[in-house]
């Protein structure tokens, strides 16, 4: 089967999962009604009947949640593939430059200062600002003495992650006496898509879609970088500039996903590996495959999260549960190789 067919099938899987995501929930709504509601919302054609509350559930709760799962999962898969290509390291993760930790600190700060209670968007907006600022700080610090090595960037990222995590832990510990505040912080840190709306779609959508379009243009450069910086340079690629630009955009995409979903570990790590097995190492296929693969993985995880218990399991727990064993497998395979 050709790679184009495989990509088409992956797209169909995402579409199927998206429909399932709209169909499954605490309230029972028939598939006919869901289809009719969506068709009516998009075209104003009446092809069936439904109750107004059912339309509210589909249009205001399930559909934005599904779209965000696609954007967040896709964004993380895409950023993961780019990071792994740039660092030539299969263990590279979208949050490598401390972006996720910075975003987490921003969100927790919004809750701690009480901004979140008055302005619901304060959490994603502050998370986005801090995530971008963290990535930028890491890059500036690492490049202070000129063109940074991969190791310098990695170490700067680790240092920034530690600082941001310490800040988050400090705010959490200051909030122990206000358990409603601490609970909200913990819920956000564990990741999840509950309560997300079209506003969040607007916040994350343009950056993820724009980021994808930009990064896809560099698929060939990423292929060349896989052979090493010398090989890429010999092919006419301005390695420092390309690396800077790709890091910047991939980190911004990661920042956008963290802003609306919290910290979701392992999605950006495991998806590119699975997609590489299906599509090979060429980034022309790997990038769209990772986007769709990430979307599919997060749709599945979110479906499990909201159906497995009477309440709702936090999404970050599930992605870690799925990613942890895979990570072990990866390490064991590397050891065997």
């Amino acid at each position: 089967m050709s790679r184009a067919w495989r990509l088409g099938m992956l797209g169909a899987l995402v579409a199927g999962l998206a429909f399932l995501s709209c169909a499954v929930g605490r309230a029972t709504i028939s598939v006919e009604s869901i289809s009719a509601i969506v068709i009516h919302a998009l075209t104003r054609w009446n092809v069936g009947s439904w109750e107004p509350w059912q339309a509210t559930i589909v249009w205001e709760i399930r559909l934005p949640r599904t779209v965000i799962a696609i954007l967040v999962g896709g964004g993380l898969g895409l950023a993961g593939a780019v990071m792994q290509g740039l660092f030539r390291n299969p263990l590279a993760d979208p949050g490598l430059l401390g972006v996720s930790s910075g975003g987490a600190f921003g969100a927790v700060l919004a809750v701690y200062t009480g901004l979140a209670a008055y302005f619901a968007l304060a959490v994603p907006i502050l998370a986005l600002c801090f995530a971008i600022a963290t990535g930028l700080t890491v890059y500036v610090v690492a490049t202070m003495r000129g063109h940074p090595s991969t190791a310098t960037l990695l170490l700067a990222g680790i240092a920034m992650t530690a600082i941001a995590s310490a800040g988050t832990a400090a705010l959490l510990s200051f909030s122990l006496s206000r358990w409603d505040v601490a609970r909200e912080m913990i819920a956000w840190l564990l990741g999840g898509l509950n309560g997300r709306s079209w506003t969040d779609v607007v916040l994350v959508g343009p950056l993820v879609v724009g980021g994808y379009l930009y990064l896809h243009c560099f698929a060939n450069d990423l292929d060349a970088l896989a052979g090493g910086e010398e090989v890429a340079s010999s092919l006419g690629i301005d390695v420092p500039i390309v690396r800077r630009n790709l890091l910047m955009v991939a980190s911004a995409v990661t920042a956008a996903t963290v802003a609306v979903s919290g910290v979701l570990a392992f999605v950006g790590l495991i998806v590119p590996h699975i997609i590489r097995l299906l599509f090979g190492p060429a980034h022309r296929w790997l990038l769209p495959g990772s986007f769709l693969g990430g979307a599919a993985l997060l749709l599945i995880a979110d479906l499990i999260a909201r159906t497995v218990t009477s309440g709702e399991l936090r999404l970050g727990i599930l992605t870690s549960l799925l990613g942890g064993p895979f990570f072990f497998l990866l390490l064991l395979r590397r050891a065997t190789d």
Binding site: L207, G211, Y214, I241
Partner: peptide, 19 residues
């Protein structure tokens, strides 16, 4: 595409659009 303008626009334009 290779300079700093395009990646910056890739980030700032969507952010502006969202805003």
């Amino acid at each position: 595409m290779r300079g700093l303008t395009t990646p910056l626009l890739t980030i700032l334009l969507p952010l502006g659009l969202s805003g």
